[in-house]
């Protein structure tokens, strides 16, 4: 095992954790790809499908990155989807209520940029609230984000009265559906965020501090790490990531809803755990998220093609999660004995 680890790609060592976990996960992802290719070669192995998938998974990928951050520090963020939806709802209303009709195209784009900044600000703000509850008031993360999830989703419900909000300008669709140099915009955004986060986690003091906090928050404090500040920044980043996911989601569906993607929370936990994040903190790698979310996407697309319902997907994911955890138990158990 260790030989393989050392012989790995420099890129992977740069991005990954060097764990045998990652290798195992990559094999699984490869296996799902092969499986789907074999089962529905005509529809799965097409360029069209690859393109389509590349537009679908980034939003889950980004949410999973946010979840990973929270779990790294030993916490969890159940309010991610709530923040994403609230942010996109507010953006939608901004377009509907504040953007003048008949605006020339280039000014529309400017307006959109402004709205994007608004979304990021909202995400940071919501994340700040989460961070304060958790780091300053010392509310357990699961309870704090359970509460804020209700508040954010509830606020969105109040604003929309449960209905979907439409009225995004045409140009907005570019975020969720456009391409640059042949690569879909959502995918580009995800990859940029992924690389950025990987860089921060592996190569900056901040990232090291996060891992240390997740490993032993008390010792981190004794080592002079400003735990409270780091936690608040972590949850703020999570909020910003969630709002970016919200932008992509609302652009793809061309609407903003208070309860879109509620299953994403559980899925993002699944992706994070699959991706090698230790639920009790201290271990995790960004590239694992990429590989894990691909696995889920392959399964998801393949199932749709096989005409399995969405529900079958949920069933498989549940089993998948359990299976991975059990396998982890055996592999880490063995390495512990050594």
């Amino acid at each position: 095992m260790s030989k393989r680890r050392e012989g790995g790609l420099e890129l992977r060592r740069f991005l990954g954790s060097g764990d045998s976990n990652l290798l195992q996960l990559s094999l699984i992802t490869l296996a799902t790809f092969i499986l789907m290719s074999v089962l529905v070669p005509d529809t799965f192995l097409t360029v069209r499908n690859m393109r389509s998938m590349s537009f679908q998974f980034p939003e889950l990928g980004i949410l999973s990155l946010a979840m990973m951050l929270a779990m790294l520090t030993g916490g969890i963020d159940l309010s991610l989807v709530g923040m994403a939806n609230l942010s996109s709802v507010i953006c939608a209303f901004t377009f509907v209520k504040l953007m003048p009709k008949d605006l020339p195209s280039d000014q529309v784009v400017l307006f959109i940029v402004g709205v994007v900044i608004l979304a990021l600000t909202l995400g940071l703000l919501c994340g700040l609230i989460n961070g304060i509850l958790i780091a300053t008031l010392h509310i357990p993360p699961i309870l704090a984000t359970l509460g804020t999830m209700q508040v954010y989703t509830g606020a969105a419900i109040v604003m929309t009265r449960g209905a979907a909000v439409i009225g995004f300008p045409e140009q907005y669709a570019f975020i969720g559906n456009g391409s640059i140099a042949g690569v879909g915009v959502p995918l580009l955004i995800f990859l940029v965020l992924l690389l950025g986060l990987a860089l921060i986690l592996r190569r900056t003091a901040f990232g090291m501090h996060l891992v240390l906090i997740g490993s032993n928050a008390k010792a981190a404090r004794f080592a002079g790490i400003k735990v409270r500040r780091h936690l608040i920044l972590t949850y703020m980043t999570g909020g910003a990531l969630a709002s970016i996911a919200g932008l992509i989601m609302s652009s793809r569906t061309n609407a903003a809803k208070a309860d879109y993607g509620t299953s994403y929370i559980l899925q993002s936990i699944l992706v994070a755990v699959l991706g090698g994040v230790n639920p009790s903190g201290g271990r995790g790698a960004a590239v694992g998220i990429l590989v894990a979310v691909l696995a889920l996407q392959f399964l998801s697309s393949g199932f749709s093609m096989l005409r399995y319902s969405n529900f079958a997907k949920e069933f498989v994911w549940g089993l998948f999660l359990l299976l991975i955890m059990i396998v982890n138990y055996f592999t880490s158990g063995e390495s512990r004995e050594k």
């Binding site: 900056t204 891992v211 240390l212 490993s215 032993n216 010792a219 201290g282 271990r283």
Partner: peptide
């Protein structure tokens, strides 16, 4: 155990837990 080391972290990280900002 509770106030000093990060038990599961590599030795190297334990060595520099308090001084990473100096290595930028």
């Amino acid at each position: 155990l509770t106030e000093g080391i990060f038990a599961e972290q590599p030795i190297e990280r334990n060595l520099f837990a308090n001084s990473y900002p100096r290595f930028k």
